[in-house]
Simulated assay, not measured.
Amino acid sequence: MSDNKKRLLLTELRKADGTQQDVAIKFGISRAYLGMIEVGVRNPTVKLMARIEKYFGIPANKLFPDLFFEVNCNKMKQNNKTA
């Protein structure tokens, strides 16, 4: 993933809380791993994602929008009617 804008909310929240090193210690991970998660080079485990979500009080799909997709139910219903 070359576009790190997708995880800007995570980065902004982390910056408001402290340095990468400070926050990484809170999650029990390395500063480098947190940095890679922020820019989208690495993805957190499900367990780590849940901890990050709980810590910041923001749903994981908002923190990691590139890992989730939203389904437009109305569009799916329309497509199923025409199929």
Rank of each mutant, 00 (worst) to 15 (best):
K75S: 08
E38L: 07
S30H: 08
K54M: 12
R42E: 11
D66Y: 11
N80Q: 06
Q21W: 09
L10H: 08
T19D: 11
T45D: 12
N43W: 05
K54G: 04
D22A: 03
N72H: 13
K75C: 07
D22I: 08
G18E: 05
R7V: 00
D3Q: 10
Y55F: 15
N72R: 14
R31H: 07
G18A: 02
Q78D: 04
R42P: 08
N43T: 14
Q20A: 15
M36Y: 13
N80Y: 06
Q20Y: 15
F68N: 14
G40E: 01
N43H: 02
L8E: 11
P44I: 05
A16L: 03
L63G: 03
M1V: 01
P59T: 10
D3L: 00
F64S: 04
S2T: 14
P44V: 09
R31K: 14
A16G: 01
K6L: 13
M76F: 10
A60H: 14
R51L: 10
E70K: 12
R31P: 00
K81R: 12
N61S: 13
L13R: 04
I37E: 01
F68I: 02
V41R: 00
R7P: 13
Y33R: 03
M49W: 03
D17N: 08
Q21C: 03
R14D: 03
R31E: 15
T19I: 07
